[in-house]
Structures are given as C-alpha cells and as structure tokens.
C-alpha cells in the first residue's frame, strides 16, 4: 500500500489568530505513488466536539483533482489563505467545544482517504465563566 505524508505549515504561526486576521500557509503531499492520488482538498473550518452531534462549517475550501488530459502535480506545494470570520470563536465548554483547524484531505484510488489537520485558535479560547 502506498504511503502518503501530508506536510502542512502556516506562514506565521500555528497558535492564536483573531477575527479579521489572515491565515495562510502551504501544504505538500508526499507519496511514492502520485498516480494513486485522485484529488486533494484543503479547508479552513470549525467543528464542534463534546456531547452533541458534530457540527462543521467550512470557511475556506479548495479542491484540486485529477482531470483527464490535464497535468496534475500531486507533489507540488500548494498555498492556501483566507481572512478569518468574526465568529464563532474557539471555545472549550462542558458540553460544547468549538475547534478551528486547517484540514487537508487526500483522496486515493479505491476510496481510501488520508487526512491531516493543524488546529489553531480563533480568539483566545474561551471557557465557561
């Protein structure tokens, strides 16, 4: 089975961002079998954790996929960047937690997926008062 490694880096830091800040960086897919990669997706998103069902909202999304007759550079470094929204801010509650991250998802042939994500904070993570 082919090994896939995803390298994901932020331009500035991977810690604290504020609404209106720009989060940018680059990602790289390393694999010994590039032809086995069908598509690559990068998203800046938040998701909930905790007792409830997971909710998820994507703020930035980009997809690169193999199209017949076109060159698809799987291993080329790709950039992403977006201005962060006003809300929701990162939160670490009892039943509800809101986590922000940049997620890269690589789709292989035969339905296999490889995912890598880099968390960051939008606003200093708030906790119940």
């Amino acid at each position: 089975m082919s090994q896939v490694k995803i390298i994901l880096e932020f331009d500035e830091h991977d810690g604290l961002y504020f609404p209106g800040d720009t989060i940018a960086g680059q990602y790289l897919v390393e694999t010994s079998t590039p032809r086995a990669v069908n598509s690559v997706e990068v998203s800046v998103l938040w998701y909930t954790m905790g007792k409830g069902e997971e909710d998820l909202s994507v703020h930035y999304f980009n997809r690169h996929s193999r199209i017949e007759g076109r060159r698809f550079e799987v291993q080329a470094p790709r950039r992403f960047g977006t201005v962060l929204p006003n809300s929701p801010l990162s939160y670490d509650g009892f039943l509800v937690k809101i986590c922000w991250c940049v997620r890269v998802r690589v789709f292989m042939r035969q339905g296999r997926e490889v995912v890598s994500e880099q968390p960051f904070q939008l606003g200093a993570t708030l906790r119940p008062v």
């Binding site: 997971e54 909202s57 939160y91």
Partner: peptide, 8 residues
C-alpha cells in the same frame, strides 16, 4: 452560538 446540534 447556534449550530445544527449545539448551542450556547
């Protein structure tokens, strides 16, 4: 905060 399954 309000999403499909979680609220504050």
């Amino acid at each position: 905060f309000r999403s499909a399954h979680n609220q504050i």
